[in-house]
Design a protein around this nucleic acid. Structure first.
Lengths: 197, 197
DNA sequence: TGTACATCAGTGAACGCGCGTTCACTGATGTAC
DNA sequence: TGTACATCAGTGAACGCGCGTTCACTGATGTAC
């Protein structure tokens, strides 16, 4: 073959990497295949050698990004490092390399069933991972806290990104971080109104 | 004139109402003007009698929706009614009539400066309104808590909408609601790690 | 009272453009004999 | 060793389509005289 072994896989992964950046930066609907392929250093037509459709690419790309986020949370270890990273100025200012959820969650809700199912599975995994970091409470209670924490983090990042005022944006990150750390703090008891376990 | 007085204003508001629903349902990028005008019972061309451009409509529409949300929070009164409404199954299942932030916040971050500035102003107002409902803490601390609460609520609603599993979606709403109520509870002291009040 | 003209919200066809997708083709390499 | 053919990642022009936007026109009413 005129390309070394594994070349096609490399190219495919390269397209996914480029697309992952563009989708998070511009949104799935606004990011065109032509632009992605040009960025990847290829022409239009080569796209369909690697993917069945744009929806197919979106799905692959999402899974890839979510796996990266999972790895980063794992790499951050047991402390509050992952939370501080998630609610950092850096993450706010680089949606293209960050968690796909704040950038794309509203669009994901409108995507085909297959993609939503795959997304749901990964998010469920993330929730489990976050829950496993909590020390207090039953499994169920910790999972509920993990959902609230993830919701808080994605909403905070989005709000900080949408707002046009640097000072306000920084304050939003700080406010979200304060609460997130309180939720995550294993030694403190977060007051949860229906105290069930 | 061949139309009664105020007819044009009525039509304009009707287009805004229809557009507000479509934008929240399908996203700004995916909702076309032709569809909106057809829904409004008019033809393509009439659009530019009322608005300068799609961006102009988006801005007007956003402001209109945010004003409605503010009124609903005011109408819900001092208790936790507004929070329960925001994190309800009803709000999750009807993005088209709900708060525009969960539906559009990622797109808002990519909109023209004028729109983002107007959005920022309204969100700032919402934060002040939420903060004014808290009893404990300094103005600044209450505003930070209000930002965290709004971030939590929008993130929770989005996650509940994106996920493809009804049971998980309900649990996400419950988890978010628990934490939101804890944050809002005026009598409890939410542990905020740097306790500056 | 009757006629000519101005007004203007709305019509509907058309504009150029970029979208996702298709497809005949290229050309460097590997394989067969 | 040399020639004929197969492979296949990538090329680049073209497809129909819906987008946001423009514009000459309509027609019901109000105004002028």
């Amino acid at each position: 073959m005129r390309y070394e072994k594994g070349h096609k896989d490399t190219t495919r992964q390269h397209i996914i990497d480029v697309a992952a950046r563009r989708f998070r930066q511009d949104g799935v609907a606004a990011a065109g295949l032509a632009g992605i392929m040009t960025d990847a250093g290829l022409t239009n037509g080569a796209f369909y050698t690697h993917f069945k459709s744009k929806d197919d690419l979106v799905c692959e790309t999402l899974m890839n990004s979510l796996d990266t986020i999972r790895e980063r949370i794992l790499a951050a270890g047991q402390g509050d490092g992952a939370i501080r990273e998630y609610l950092s100025v850096k993450h706010r200012d680089r949606p293209d390399t960050g968690c796909p959820t704040p950038a794309l969650v509203a669009e994901i809700a409108r995507l085909p069933k297959k993609t939503r199912t795959a997304y749901t599975e990964r998010v469920n995994g993330l929730i489990d991972l976050i829950a496993s970091r909590f020390r207090n409470g039953s499994d169920e209670e910790r999972r509920r806290r993990a959902m609230a924490l993830y919701g808080l983090m994605i909403g905070t990042v989005q709000l900080a990104r949408a707002v046009n005022d640097k000072k306000l944006s920084d304050q939003i990150l700080e406010g979200g971080l304060e609460l997130a750390l309180a939720v995550a703090d294993r030694s403190s008891s977060i007051p949860m109104p229906p105290p069930e376990d």
